[in-house]
Structures are given as C-alpha cells and as structure tokens.
C-alpha cells in the first residue's frame, strides 16, 4: 500500500547530452497526444470563440453583465469557495486517516473516495436532493434545527462539496505518504508538542498540495451543473448558478449568449489554474533550492 519513493529514478532514464533517445516512439506518442489535446480541448475552445465572435463587444458585455447573470456569478463564487474550503479541511482529514492509520475497511474507504468521480453527477444530484429535502432523512433532522438545505444556496454548497472532494484527497495523499517520519521525530526530539509538529513541520509540507487540491476543487465547482440543478431550487437571483444560466440561454436558442457566459467561466477557471501553477512552481523551487 505504501509507495516507496525512489529518488533519482526518473533522472537516470533521461538520455545524457544529445545522444539518441533511449525510449523509442517519441515522435509518434507526442503526435498522438497533441492531436488528442487539440480534439478535446482546443476544438471546443475555438467553437466557443467562433460562436461569440458573431456578437459585438457591446452585445457581449450586455449579456455577461445582465443582473440575473451577475447574481449567478456571486452565488457560484461564494458557494464554490465555501465548498472548496470545506473540502480543504475534510479532505485533509480523510487523506490523513487513509495514510497514517491501519484499520479494517481502509481499502474500501480509499476506493469510495473516488465515487464522486465515477457517479454520474445527475445521480448524485437526485440522491442529495432526496436526502436533504424536508421529508428526506437528513432534511428532517436539519429542519428541526431550523436549517434548510435543499432548494437553497446551502444545497449548492453540499452538491459542490460532494462532487469535488476527491481532488483534495488525491492531491494531498501522495504528499503525505512521502513525508519522512524522521522530520516528525526530529521535531519531537526537540520538544515540540503534537500540535506544533503539525503546524510547523507537516502542514508546511502539505500546504502546496492542499492549495492545489482546493483550487482544483474550486474550479470544478464553478462549472458543476448536473449535481446542483436538482438540489438548488434554481430561484432566479437566489440560487441560480452560472452553468444553469448557460443552460437557460441554450433553451432560449440564444447560442451566442450561452457561449458568452461560458467564456467567462472558462476564463476564470483557466486564470485560476494558471496562477496556482505559477505560485506552486515558485514555492517548490524555493524548497528545492533552485531559486
């Protein structure tokens, strides 16, 4: 279960200098990869741009700043933020339990973590809506406490958190596995309390992976649709998410408007991934002493 780190294993495979590559098929495999990336990523991107290019700048601005759409941005952003922060805390806990302890059923839990990826989001949405509805198992209990989840923005948070938790667990887990036990032992031999060991030794090592996981979880939540629409209630100005707005425009056969809103979501997601990558690169560079 525990993977042994093999330092330098990757380097030894790299050819030295300008000699012929040892691994065959470089041209072919790179070609296929590029072709596929174009097909699944660049082609739809181009479609989006082509679709919106029929609009004037004013029209584009008008569509993406429509008050109802702007409200949906707000709802989407804060619910996605809440969901990904929740996942940051809970995902870390889950990864910690899976890496640090041996218990019966560990492998089952490890497999279940991926369930949100495997489950169709619509199924997740219906299930969550049923559970959290006022008559549902959880909804009943929460209603007694005066908390409404289904058909409110909180429902959106629940759906987003559910569908994106694997991102945090799966990015933190390998990093946690690689932390040398000596680091913790060293800290303890220097008199540090358990809390201090976690704050000063473990957390700084986990931090970059956690930020990445939370950011991935956040971007995924920005675009989540299937799981949300069943539980959100979709009340205009209250619980409409941006992806729903795209869907609404499509139903009105206003493809240009739909593409315009979609391009906003896309831009935000790409920007975020980009920023995270740069930040993480710098952070790791400093740790590895290449600065």
């Amino acid at each position: 279960m525990i993977k042994q780190a093999t330092p330098g294993a990757g380097q030894s495979r790299r050819p030295i200098g300008r000699s012929k590559r040892v691994l065959p098929g470089f041209g072919l495999s790179l070609g296929i990869s590029l072709f596929f990336i174009s097909l699944i990523l660049l082609l739809p991107l181009t479609g989006l741009i082509v679709e919106t290019s029929g609009m004037t700048w004013d029209q584009f601005w008008f569509v993406i700043t429509d008050p109802r759409v702007v409200e949906s941005y707000k709802v989407t952003l804060w619910t996605a933020a809440a969901a990904s922060l929740f996942n940051g805390a809970f995902g870390l806990l889950l990864a910690w339990v899976l890496v640090r302890y041996e218990f019966i059923g560990k492998r089952v839990i490890d497999a279940v973590v991926d369930l949100p990826f495997a489950l169709p989001t619509a199924v997740a949405g219906i299930t969550l809506a049923t559970l959290f509805a006022e008559t549902g198992w959880y909804g009943q209990l929460l209603a007694k406490a005066g908390i409404e989840v289904a058909f409110t923005p909180i429902g959106i948070v629940v759906a987003m958190a559910f569908t994106s938790i694997p991102f945090v667990v799966r990015t933190v887990q390998p990093v946690l596995e690689e932390i040398a036990p000596e680091d913790e032992e060293a800290a303890m031999s220097l008199g540090a309390s358990d809390g201090r060991v976690f704050r000063k030794v473990l957390f700084p090592a986990l931090w970059p992976a956690m930020v990445t996981g939370v950011a991935l979880s956040f971007t995924r939540s920005l675009g989540e649709f299937g799981a949300i629409i069943f539980i959100a209630g979709n009340t205009p100005y209250v619980s409409e998410v941006t992806s729903l707005m795209i869907f609404v425009r499509l139903q009105e056969y206003d493809y240009a408007a739909a593409s315009a809103i979609a391009s906003v979501v896309l831009a935000v997601s790409l920007l975020l991934l980009f920023v995270i990558n740069i930040w993480q690169g710098r952070y790791l560079k400093r740790l590895e002493g290449r600065s």
Partner: peptide
Amino acid sequence: LHVRDRDIGFVFQHYALFRHL
C-alpha cells in the same frame, strides 16, 4: 517518558532538517 520529555539531542543519518525553514 515521551521523547520530547527526555531532554536529548538526536541527529539523524539523513539530517531531517525542516526544508521549509
């Protein structure tokens, strides 16, 4: 006694320095 209460200094083969500090 826990290691943190034994008041010892321990040096590891692979240094175990905190790399972010």
